[in-house]
Design a protein around this nucleic acid. Structure first.
Lengths: 242, 242
DNA sequence: AATTTCACCGATAGTACTATCGGTGAAATT
DNA sequence: AATTTCACCGATAGTACTATCGGTGAAATT
């Protein structure tokens, strides 16, 4: 049947993978509270005590899990955004920057769930890690927006960009979860909504930038003004793109 | 000192409130995993076994907690949105519909955290409840948008409205958390961002509605609707508002 | 005044889990 | 071939918690 004589370290690594896989599946079915060395070891086919050959404790396994998943997603997002920036005209590519994370989340939803739970659980040893991860996503997203031409040269605008990135990331997670729950069968539709959310907010940024402070939000005739001069396509490209 | 002779039921109710308060504070400091009948009872000043006089088990206490918090928030949001609808011109009132939930979340962040954790924890007995609560927020928000004039008379548009509501709700939670973490000191700024996110997405809805693309919900001449040739105010009011 | 109710108590049986320890045999090294 | 390494094992001490039970005294009812 097998014919594959494994070396000792190969066998160990295999067992380690089995433990990780088992943990993921239990996490998926029962959540973090259902996770125990007993269950994971048993599901991986080894004795409970052997769990400690591979991990110092359960927290270490969880961290490994979170890191692996996060790394993969971040890499694919970076790539998608880079491509979109290189071909600025391509709407499909731009939407792609939203579809990539959506798909990535849907591929391993438990990984996002761990992060979300950890971020909101003061007792989780992963909390700091999850908070840092979320901050990295947020700041990276904000930096990408800045690269698209939404220069943030003062404190307020920087904060706004960060809020937009924060909000959009949260919305992305929410829509991915909705897809998994069967509410939004088409991920492209979700990506469209995210694009629209993002652009709407960015328009505000342009509109009320600190440059021409002539406009306190509300002037006769133009309730929430557009940059003077350019009142074009309502779904127009960001300033630096066309 | 006291001078307040409590009846038996008053005393019992007081103890019950103490338990709830204690649970909230422990939840805040240590999270759900740190919650136990031992700790809660001790913090409330009674014996561990007396916990069961007031609650069937810890899950019941958690549910009571979640229900109380959710009820309060929902009521204040309904009220804020009603007011905004009654005075359609008032931008401050519209922003208020976003500031109310932001403030409410910040008042008792643990309550939202419980819900979020529960939604993403398959083992939580509160999961169904949290999912239903989230669905209620989402659908209510979507209905409110529909009431603003974004009629959703086909499946696709309905789904889009729901996605927008879903995304905005998620963004609201994220910005509230960011405020608590000290990143967004001004809740009004956050409310502005949410308003902008919302409007941007709704514009898409109008723009690509499946009906004759020429005339979305508004009438000809309506300053609000965006007839293709008429590059009007890109951050205009929703169709039904002016 | 006698009786009943009941919020609370301490003790405790039971459950689930963690993490360590000495032992084992096959792989790896000498 | 002899020796060492080490992934894995079963047993077990220790920890933390849940939920029940009989008892108690003051409040409430009669």
């Amino acid at each position: 049947m097998t014919g594959t004589p494994l070396t000792r370290s190969e066998a160990k690594d295999l067992t380690r993978r089995k433990l990780i896989r088992a943990a993921l599946s239990i996490l998926d079915e029962e959540g973090e509270a259902g996770l125990s060395t007993v269950k994971v070891a048993k599901a991986a086919g080894i004795a409970q005590s052997s769990f400690y050959v591979h991990f110092k404790d359960m927290q270490e396994l969880l961290r490994v899990l979170a890191e692996e998943g996060g790394e993969r997603l971040r890499a694919s997002m970076r790539e998608a955004r880079r491509r979109a920036r290189e071909h600025p005209g391509d709407l499909d590519l731009h939407r792609e920057t939203f579809r990539i994370p959506l798909e990535s989340i849907c591929r391993h939803p438990e990984l996002l769930r761990i992060q979300i739970r950890a971020r909101h659980d003061p007792s989780s040893s992963l909390r700091d890690f999850a908070t840092e991860t979320a901050a990295a996503y947020r700041e990276h997203h904000a930096a990408d927006l800045a690269a698209l031409g939404y220069t943030a040269d003062n404190e307020r605008d920087r904060r706004r960009l960060e809020m937009i990135a924060d909000g959009i990331n949260a919305a992305t997670n929410a829509l991915a979860m909705g897809h998994l729950e069967g509410r939004y069968p088409d991920l492209d539709e979700a990506a469209d909504i995210l694009t629209a959310l993002s652009r709407g907010a960015l328009r505000l940024l342009r509109a009320t930038s600190n440059r021409p402070l002539t406009e306190p939000p509300g002037q006769p005739g133009d309730p929430v003004s557009e940059p003077p001069g350019r009142a074009g396509d309502p779904v127009s490209e960001p300033p630096g793109r066309s």
